[in-house]
Every structure is written in C-alpha cells, then in structure tokens.
Design a protein around this nucleic acid. Structure first.
Length: 550
RNA sequence: GGCCCCUUGGUCAAGCGGUUAAGACGGCGCCCUCUCAAGGCGCAAUCAUGGGUUCGAUUCCCGUAGGGGUCACCA
C-alpha cells in the first residue's frame, strides 16, 4: 500500500512536517538541571484540591531547579467543557500563589514561545504528526461504528481476552487504499488509530519518579489518536505537546500509570524521547470507615474555592499540601519559623505512594500556627480582605478604625508565645465579637462560684474606681485591691492554702470583670481588651451587665 | 474479571535484617497560669494475614485478604 498517498487522502491540507515544528519549537536553552513541568487540566469545572496539589508539586519541581512551569489547557473534549472552566483554574492557581511562567499566565494572557497552550488551537500540529505516522504506515483510519465497537467488546468478554481494538477484531487495520477511499467518498466518519507494534507477552519497564521501577504489559491495542472531529485524544496530545513544549518531567495523577505503555509506545513510534514520569497518589477522603478519592460531587472541600470561602489562609493550605507531599516539611518549618514555603526543597522520592486522607483537623492546626506567626498588621489586612468578600458587616467594622482593629488582633501576640486561637478568617467574627458593640450580643456566661451580691458589689467598686492603668501589672494590682476589699484572696496561692478564709480569689474577681466586659469567661488578656475598648465602653458594659443580672 | 499500585497508632508518617518501632495532628492527664489560647511534661494507641528465607523479620520472597486505579472517539 502506498502510505504516502493515503496520508495525502486523509490530510490534504496539512503541508508542514514534524521537522518544521521541531524548528519552530527548538530545544530550550537551559541548564542541565533545569526542569520543565506543566499542569495540564481540562476545563471541566472548578479547580480541585488534588489539581492544586499536582500543580504545586510541578511548580516546585520546576522553580527549585531553575526551570519553567507551564499551564496548558487540555480542552480536547468539547462535551465536558465548562464555560468559565479556564478562568476558574487560573483564578484558583493565582489565589494560592502558584506562579506560572508559560502558557496561561493570567486571565487572557498567554505567554511563551511554545504555544498555543490550548489544545483546541493546536489541531494542525497534531494532524501533522498524525499524517507522518500514516505516511510511515504506523496509523490508519478506522470506520467502525459505536455498535461494532460494542459488539467487539462483547465478543472479547465472552472469549475472556483483553478488550480493545486489537488482533482479529482490528477490522480496519488492513483495509486497502481503495476500501478507505470508497468509505471516505461515501462520507463515512472515521477515527485515526495507531497501529500498535506491541505484543501480548512483552513487558515494558519505566522508572517512576515517586514509585521507582514499574513493569507493565506492553500496549497491544490500536488506540485512537485522532477523534472523528480531527481532535486528538489525551494520549496523543500529551505525547505531541510535551515533546514540543520540551517538558522534561510529567507529574500527574496516578490514574495515568496504566496508560504509560501507550505513551511510551507513541513516543517510540514518533522517534521521540519520553519525559520522566512521576505519578502522584490522589487525596482521599474518609467515607463510612473506608477511603475514597475526594470527589467533586460529594465533598465541598474538594473545590479549592471552599478554602477561600472559609477563609483559610492561603499559606496554611499550601503548607498543609506540602506537608502531605513531604514529611520533612514539618522539620523545615520547625527550623525556619518565618521562612516562606518556597524555601523548602521538595523531594520527589519522598512522596508517599498511597493516597492520604485529607485531614481538616491538621489543616486547622497548621493554619492556626500560620496566623499566629503573622504580625497584627498582616492579620488585619488578610482578615479585612476576606471579610470584604464574605462578610460585609465585619468588613465595615474592621475597617472603621484600623488602629483599633490592629490593636485587637495584637492581643497576646507576643513573638515567643503567640496566641493561637483562630485558624481561618471566618472565625474572626466569633472570636472578637465582644470588641464591637454591633456584634456584642448581650449574652453572658454564668459565673458559678461568685454570688450575685458579690458580683454586683465587685462591679460597683470596680466601676467607681476604674482608671486606665498604664500597664498590665498595675492594673492587676488594682484588681487585687478590689478582691481584698470584697473578701477575696489577693493571690490564688493564698486562697488555695486557706480556702475557708476567703470567698474566692483574684481570679474569680477578674472573671466577673471579664464576663461583664466580654460576655464570656474565656478571653484573651483582659487588660489589653479594656485598654483597647476604652474607659467609656468598659463602664457601659459593666452597667449593662448589672442590668442583665439584676 | 484481566492488569497495575498500595497496606506501620484514629490521621499524616519515619523506618530500609537486630530500634525501648521516631516525630506531628488529635485524645487523655499533670504542671504553669487572673480565664482561655499558648507553652512545658507525661500517658494511651500502630507493623492487615498466613507461609517461607534467616541465628533473627516491620524490613526480603510467595500466597491470602482489604483498599485504590485502569481497561472510551473522557481527561
């Protein structure tokens, strides 16, 4: 058969050759060490936490080696594509600080010399490589209908042999030129299949960057490389794109492992060198005592936007993911308390090869530590940013008096032992409601161990003698005076040594003030709170509390 | 079902033939403390299972079970 003639019949408009594209997209001029990685999602909905994880790993591997990180859009499936899919991906990546060098670096901004970076715009390139395969007799058109394919599958199931287009079921494999031409003239639609040279009893080996050596049976199926609309399947697009974009390391989900034989075969048939592969385990979710892949449909936390909505600090989420990727991140963080996460050297071979359960409790802990490490200014900025989008009332309150809010976020924020009570911005409202009259709900925790009479007497004395103390010590000393006056011990120790001699101790007295001022028995440093609140508001709170318990 | 991958406390996990089987989160307890948060100290809790190999298996080999993935003109 004259394959050249066939190629012309199939691709009359394709006049470039693979050599042309080799020249258009030359080898990159980079260090030996520099790695080119890419994140290649399909725009079928929101950005998934697993996608962010894969993107983060790829970005790290590229940037810590002095290489480049590409965002390529795999939009070869028109049926599943979602309108704003691309912008959702870019927005998600951007909001988590993933820096893209090439491809879709921003909304409507495509950069780089290896584009276009959207597969739907690369049809001619794929077709050119497909044509060359046909010319060499390595690919052929297949006219089998869906029904035929279904029948083949049935037969194979009955015979208990490997399903797929191969062997005696590969009906179109040996069609003559005349048959093909006749079919085409009839207007029959067809796909292009690769003529697999694989044999059933041979195996292929490859080294996975995470799992090490993997051995799989060779691919014997004549897979589709071009769909009937002329658009490539994932496999073919991957091979052509990652070659032409000069990707050195393909990092993707482990659901691709079983396709590696197909990919390696394609690279070989095109005479190209495959990239290094690394397959990462999916993020799992606990389900009825079992594990399952975290799912777009069932789990709100699968969407990356969920973390933004909840107000998790983006660094916290990233560090949790890094922690999931390499157990050594924790040590890095302990040793470098304030270093940016980009200083951490991610190691591929330290990645776990079984899927980890996503642990919101751990995430929360990391985020608490993260926020505790911020300055009050930074907390203010980030909390306000979040509130602006998700809690308008809080935003108004927070920004009404920046100095006031910053002082509030500064409670107990000493560098050695910072307060760790909020893990996400949505907790700000609840944690600091007492700082704003608009949010202060007039509900009070019960005080169990002080009588109502004593509470009133303490409040009276306190209100009458209230002065803004210059520092915490002095304030506390004056509180001790109040305690003493009402029959409470000045020191907790004194009380413990001789409990019958007192009604209680200074801690009980401070709690009375605490409840009056904040409504609750648990709060950050009371002195700081009152100082920030100001005398007038403190006195108002005290009288309001008296009214409430009267 | 075929093929492939995986299996250490509740969770993330270190370990790579001999260990009291790290560490972190969570839990519990104690200490510190004007409350809480934090911090300090401590406790409980793990090698899926059966066979080998070996003087010795968490570690190596085989089987079993369980989990996951994949077998499309989806990625």
């Amino acid at each position: 058969m004259d394959y050249k003639k066939l190629a012309e019949l199939l691709f009359p408009t394709i006049d470039k050759t693979p050599e042309d594209y080799e020249a258009i997209y030359p080898q990159r001029d980079l260090d030996e060490e520099a790695k080119i990685t890419r994140f290649a999602p399909s725009p079928t909905g929101f950005l998934h936490i697993g996608g962010l994880f894969a993107a983060l790993i790829s970005e790290r591997i590229a940037h810590q080696s002095g290489g480049k990180f590409i965002l390529r859009i795999e939009d070869t499936d028109k049926k599943r594509e979602v309108d704003d899919g691309v912008s959702k991906i870019i927005e998600g990546l951007k909001s988590f600080g993933i820096k893209i060098d090439e491809g879709f670096v921003d909304f409507d901004t495509e950069e780089g010399a290896y584009g276009p970076y959207k597969q739907s715009q690369r049809a001619e390139i794929y077709q050119c490589y497909a044509k060359s395969l046909v010319e060499q007799g390595l690919a052929y058109p297949c006219f089998c209908s869906e029904e035929t394919l279904a029948k083949i599958r049935e037969e194979q199931e009955a015979e208990k042999i490997l399903p797929g287009y191969h062997g005696k079921h590969a009906y179109c494999r040996d069609l003559s030129y005349e048959q093909i031409e006749a079919n085409i003239n009839e207007g029959k639609s067809y796909v292009l299949r690769l003529k697999s040279p694989g044999s059933e009893d041979k195996r292929i080996n490859f080294k996975d960057g995470i799992r090490g050596k993997i051995e799989l049976p060779e691919n014997i199926v004549d897979v589709v490389i071009l769909k009937s609309d002329g658009i490539p399947t994932y496999h073919f697009a991957h091979v052509v794109d990652d070659h032409l974009m000069r990707t050195t390391n393909v990092i993707r989900g482990d659901e691709w492992i079983s396709s590696v034989p197909i990919h390696i075969q394609m690279f070989a048939m095109l005479g190209l060198k495959p990239p290094k592969y690394a397959h990462i385990a999916p993020i799992m979710k606990e389900d009825d005592g079992g594990k399952r892949k975290i799912s777009k449909r069932k789990d709100p936390e699968a969407a990356v936007t969920w973390y933004s909505d909840e107000g998790y600090p983006v660094d916290g989420v990233i560090e949790y993911l890094l922690n999931l990727a390499n157990y050594t991140f924790e040590d890095f963080r302990r040793a470098n308390k304030t270093a940016p996460w980009t200083d951490f050297k991610l190691e591929m071979n330290k990645m776990s090869n079984s899927g980890a359960l996503f642990d919101l409790v751990k995430l929360n802990d990391i985020c608490k530590n993260k926020i505790a490490s911020y300055t009050a200014d930074k907390v203010y900025t980030l909390a306000a940013d979040w509130a602006k989008q998700y809690d308008e009332e809080l935003y108004t309150l927070l920004t009404r008096d920046e100095e006031y809010s910053t002082a509030m976020f500064g409670f107990d924020r000493n560098p050695d032992k910072p307060r760790k009570d909020i893990g996400k911005w949505s907790e700000v409202r609840g944690a600091f409601s007492f700082m704003f009259d608009e949010l202060f709900d007039g509900k009070y925790d019960d005080i169990a161990n002080v009588s109502k009479e004593d509470i009133c007497a303490i409040l009276d004395t306190y209100a009458d003698t209230y002065e803004e103390a210059p520092d915490n010590n002095e304030w506390f000393n004056s509180l001790k005076d109040v305690a003493e006056k009402h029959g409470f011990a000045r020191e907790v120790k004194e009380y413990k040594q001789n409990p019958d001699a007192y009604k209680g101790h200074v801690g009980d007295v401070s709690n009375v003030i605490r409840v009056a001022v904040t409504g609750r028995t648990k709060s950050p440093d009371l002195y700081s709170i009152m100082k920030t609140l100001g005398k007038e508001r403190v006195l108002n709170r005290i009288s309001a509390y008296k009214g409430a318990i009267a």
